[in-house]
Computed example of a mutant assay.
Amino acid sequence: MGVVMGKDEKVNIPHLYMKLAMDLEKLRNYPWGMYSFDFLLKQIDKTRHKLEQNEGYLMEGFLFGFQIWIMEVVPALGEICGTKVNRNFTGPLYVEILGSRGVIDMGISNEATVAEDVLGVRRRRRHRTELLNAIESEMVAVKDRLRENVEDVSLWRRSSGFKDKFSTQETWILTRTSYAHIDWANNYGQGCEMYRVDVTCALCKNAAESRSHLFFECSYSSQIWENLMLDILRGSYTTDWNAIVALLKQSDRDKKRSFCLRYGFQTIIYVIWRERNKITHGESPLPMNAVKKLIDKGVRNKLSLLRSRGGKGTESALQYWVSTRT
């Protein structure tokens, strides 16, 4: 029998951890990364209210990832607060870089941190060595950037450097993985064929699917279109997409006819596309008669709502629609 205990007697082990510890397979497959990220965000939100307190604060979570993020967002921190040293380095940073004499010339303590030297009270010195003068200049510049009486400036990363304006396009380019341009990307049929995707119409199974075929050259969709629109279009009836769009754009003095045509067109498009997606994703479509009744009911409900609200020019639209159904 195993026992799960915390390092501190005051720390309670969550019940979730205990259950995971009893099932090694679940323990290995548990999304620890996502959990750690969410936990870290909660800790940051909890801790940020304590930043103005002088007694300090404690933050828990995956802080290493947080530190990496800070260094990525503000790369200047690495240049200011860090430097490359050899792997055998064990002594104070200033001594390693400047030597024992350089530390004395700078007036810096062997044990001092960068923050203590930059923010502390010290007078700038002039040196004969270029390196020491460069460090003095950098410390002054850093101290100037860290002034408390000046508002922070938010900068956004761009391909050309950090800018004060945010760009969705630049952010997308920087965060996505780029691939080589593929010539057939604009050719729907050829692209699907290369990936062996069936482009046959899901409704009639007799031709390649395209916009013009689906609306309304397809034997399935043309039956629905004819059943609902033949008596409205009459002599102008057609199943050609471009011709239908031209009819929809025409200004018609008969507002009730124009509205029934346009709203009926929208409803038919929506329902046919939904039935097409059902078949594509392995679901069973509705029977043809059920589809016709569904569209008819949807149009009637819309027209009834308009009549109850007193829509101008559509008072008799419901009667007109019903007359085309008989």
Results as ranks from 00 to 15, higher is better:
4 V>A: 09
7 K>E: 07
7 K>Q: 06
8 D>L: 10
25 E>V: 14
28 R>C: 12
32 W>Q: 07
36 S>C: 14
39 F>P: 00
41 L>E: 07
47 T>L: 02
48 R>A: 08
50 K>E: 12
51 L>D: 01
51 L>N: 05
54 N>P: 02
61 G>A: 02
62 F>A: 15
63 L>E: 06
75 P>W: 03
75 P>E: 04
75 P>R: 03
83 T>G: 15
88 N>V: 05
95 V>P: 02
100 S>V: 09
101 R>N: 12
101 R>D: 14
101 R>T: 13
102 G>L: 04
103 V>D: 01
109 S>D: 15
109 S>W: 10
109 S>R: 14
113 T>M: 06
113 T>F: 07
115 A>G: 03
127 H>G: 04
133 N>M: 01
139 M>H: 10
141 A>N: 10
141 A>V: 11
147 R>G: 12
153 V>T: 15
155 L>T: 09
156 W>K: 07
157 R>Q: 14
159 S>L: 13
159 S>G: 15
161 G>F: 05
167 S>Y: 01
173 I>W: 10
174 L>F: 01
181 H>L: 09
185 A>L: 11
190 Q>F: 05
190 Q>G: 00
190 Q>R: 08
193 E>Y: 02
194 M>Q: 06
200 T>M: 09
203 L>N: 02
205 K>E: 10
208 A>P: 00
211 R>I: 12
211 R>T: 14
211 R>F: 05
215 F>H: 05
215 F>M: 04
217 E>D: 11
227 N>F: 14
231 D>I: 00
234 R>L: 03
236 S>K: 12
242 N>P: 00
244 I>K: 02
248 L>S: 04
249 K>P: 00
254 D>H: 08
257 R>K: 11
258 S>T: 02
267 T>E: 06
269 I>T: 12
270 Y>H: 13
271 V>L: 03
278 K>P: 02
278 K>I: 03
283 E>N: 15
294 L>V: 08
297 K>C: 13
299 V>I: 15
300 R>D: 11
304 S>T: 12
307 R>D: 04
310 G>M: 06
314 T>G: 00
321 W>S: 01
323 S>T: 06
326 T>W: 03
